[in-house]
Simulated scan of single mutants.
Amino acid sequence: MNRIVEPVALGEVIQAFSADTLIIAIDAILPVRAIGKTVKASSKYRQIASSIAEIGLVEPPVVCRDRQAGSYLLLDGHLRVEALKELGHMDVECLLSTDDEAFTYNKRISRLSPIQEQRMIAKAIERNVSKEAIAKALCINVRSLVRKATLIDGICEEAVGLLKDKICPLAVFDVLRKMNPIRQIEAAELLINANNYSVSYATAILAGTPQAQLADSTTPKRMKGMTAEALARMEGELSRLQQSITSIQETYGEDHLHLTVVKGYLAKLVGNPKVARYLEERQPEFLSEFRNIVQMTSTLPAD
């Protein structure tokens, strides 16, 4: 029986950050890595600098006290601090960490997906923030902003739900928009199952889509460099592939359970010295395969 431990017995919980932020002179902050010229020329850096110039610093950098009095080590926020320097700022509001561990900061956080970005932009527009101001903060032109804001127009809710946290190129949604809602859902599932969100793969799915499942079923489907016969062949192959994937998905759980049970049984079998010796003398190829199954850690093929 587990013993109940009183909260007092666990001792005081140590906070990871101090309760208040600190205003620190930028010259007193020591970066733990250098920012190269290529990084400064990147679109990410330009976007950060533009955002700070337009709306100010949203997320404070994270620092910890250095052994040298009056100085701080910069754990997270190198690009933000560098952008502040270039913009002429002398100090910055920082979060003070109680240790020098940088493993859990923003570099480990997942990137924002296009659909999540679209929802944030759409919400800002609904709150009467001008498109010009949003575009300036994101360091993009208004035309690109409008494209991001209307990203899911013409995409059914079910497909949006499937792709809401996936990092898809914007052009993938242009391809999905050419399909009817049912086919959009099927295409989104194919993208997820293959873990491939490239425009070329989405285009291949479009090429294999029957005419009746297109958004405009009256206009003949045309793909650059492909004949009508090749398109018809792709439709048939993609249909068979989809049926195979569906069949595997239906039985995957049960098959995996059977394999786990078999693996456990074979582990006991080859672990028995008498059985192992018998198999080695009479059926060595079986013993070799049984041991391979027991040692298997994944059902995926080796690279």
Results as ranks from 00 to 15, higher is better:
residue 1 M to H: 12
residue 2 N to K: 12
residue 12 E to L: 13
residue 12 E to P: 02
residue 15 Q to W: 00
residue 17 F to E: 06
residue 22 L to N: 12
residue 22 L to M: 14
residue 23 I to M: 15
residue 26 I to K: 05
residue 29 I to H: 06
residue 29 I to Y: 06
residue 29 I to A: 05
residue 30 L to W: 14
residue 32 V to L: 15
residue 33 R to A: 10
residue 33 R to I: 03
residue 34 A to Y: 15
residue 36 G to M: 05
residue 40 K to R: 15
residue 41 A to D: 10
residue 43 S to R: 10
residue 47 Q to C: 08
residue 54 E to Y: 05
residue 57 L to A: 11
residue 64 C to I: 07
residue 73 L to Q: 09
residue 75 L to Q: 03
residue 76 D to R: 05
residue 77 G to E: 03
residue 78 H to R: 04
residue 82 E to L: 00
residue 82 E to R: 09
residue 83 A to G: 06
residue 85 K to M: 04
residue 85 K to P: 00
residue 87 L to T: 09
residue 88 G to R: 03
residue 88 G to C: 05
residue 90 M to D: 15
residue 92 V to I: 07
residue 94 C to A: 13
residue 96 L to S: 10
residue 97 S to L: 09
residue 99 D to H: 08
residue 101 E to H: 08
residue 101 E to A: 10
residue 102 A to W: 12
residue 103 F to T: 13
residue 105 Y to M: 07
residue 105 Y to A: 05
residue 106 N to A: 10
residue 108 R to L: 13
residue 110 S to I: 06
residue 111 R to K: 14
residue 112 L to G: 08
residue 113 S to I: 03
residue 114 P to Y: 06
residue 116 Q to D: 09
residue 117 E to D: 07
residue 119 R to W: 08
residue 121 I to Y: 06
residue 121 I to P: 00
residue 122 A to D: 11
residue 125 I to D: 06
residue 126 E to C: 03
residue 130 S to R: 00
residue 137 A to W: 09
residue 137 A to D: 06
residue 142 V to M: 05
residue 144 S to P: 01
residue 153 D to V: 04
residue 154 G to F: 05
residue 156 C to E: 13
residue 157 E to A: 14
residue 157 E to K: 11
residue 162 L to G: 04
residue 162 L to M: 08
residue 164 K to C: 11
residue 165 D to C: 11
residue 166 K to V: 13
residue 169 P to L: 09
residue 169 P to E: 14
residue 170 L to E: 15
residue 171 A to R: 15
residue 172 V to P: 01
residue 172 V to A: 02
residue 173 F to C: 02
residue 174 D to A: 10
residue 177 R to N: 11
residue 179 M to T: 02
residue 179 M to E: 01
residue 180 N to T: 04
residue 183 R to I: 00
residue 194 A to N: 12
residue 194 A to K: 12
residue 194 A to V: 08
residue 195 N to K: 12
residue 202 A to K: 02
residue 205 I to G: 03
residue 208 G to Q: 00
residue 208 G to K: 02
residue 209 T to Y: 09
residue 211 Q to Y: 03
residue 213 Q to Y: 10
residue 213 Q to E: 13
residue 215 A to E: 07
residue 216 D to E: 08
residue 218 T to K: 06
residue 221 K to W: 04
residue 228 A to W: 01
residue 230 A to V: 04
residue 231 L to H: 04
residue 232 A to N: 11
residue 233 R to C: 00
residue 235 E to G: 00
residue 238 L to W: 06
residue 240 R to T: 02
residue 242 Q to R: 02
residue 244 S to V: 00
residue 244 S to G: 06
residue 244 S to Q: 09
residue 245 I to D: 02
residue 249 Q to M: 10
residue 250 E to P: 01
residue 254 E to P: 00
residue 254 E to C: 03
residue 255 D to M: 02
residue 263 K to R: 14
residue 266 L to K: 03
residue 267 A to C: 07
residue 268 K to L: 15
residue 268 K to F: 12
residue 274 K to Q: 14
residue 275 V to F: 11
residue 276 A to V: 05
residue 278 Y to T: 10
residue 282 R to V: 03
residue 283 Q to I: 06
residue 284 P to Q: 01
residue 285 E to L: 10
residue 291 R to I: 01
residue 293 I to S: 11
residue 293 I to W: 11
residue 294 V to Y: 15
residue 294 V to A: 14
residue 296 M to T: 13
residue 301 P to A: 05
